[in-house]
């Protein structure tokens, strides 16, 4: 059994599952946004902000924001543990990445629900 403390879930399996589920959510969200932009070529501010004012869209977007956080962390944790062997540099990089992810998450929530 190989132990690790900076991975996301409680086991390799839960990380794998989180990455797959978040991938599916993000795939759906991407398809939705791309389709929306393609089918609304003359988009204006009123329609755009109207879309994000609706509760179902906010829920979908928040779900996607959390999915980005989880998906990015599992992926980047794998990358850092593959290539960065000096422990100090690796842990430092992981901390910076986690902070960046947290910033994105709060930023996204602020955009959705900010004044």
């Amino acid at each position: 059994m190989v132990t690790n403390v900076t991975n996301l879930g409680r086991s390799g399996l839960s990380d794998w599952l989180i990455q797959r589920v978040s991938a599916l959510i993000l795939a759906l969200y991407t398809l939705f946004i791309v389709a929306y932009l393609l089918f609304n070529p003359g988009l204006d501010y009123a329609a755009w902000s109207g879309l994000f004012a609706q509760t179902w869209m906010r829920i979908f977007t928040l779900l996607s924001l959390i999915s980005i956080a989880a998906h990015a962390w599992v992926g980047l944790w794998t990358v850092t543990t593959d290539y960065i062997k000096p422990t100090g540099v690796r842990v430092g990089t992981q901390i910076v990445i986690i902070l960046a992810i947290f910033v994105f998450l709060v930023w996204g929530i602020q955009v959705l629900w900010g004044a």
């Binding site: 059994m1 390799g12 794998t78």
Partner: peptide, 14 residues
Amino acid sequence: LAELEDPFSVFRCR
């Protein structure tokens, strides 16, 4: 299976 649950043993397969 219990021995293989961690994030490294099996799940490094990409």
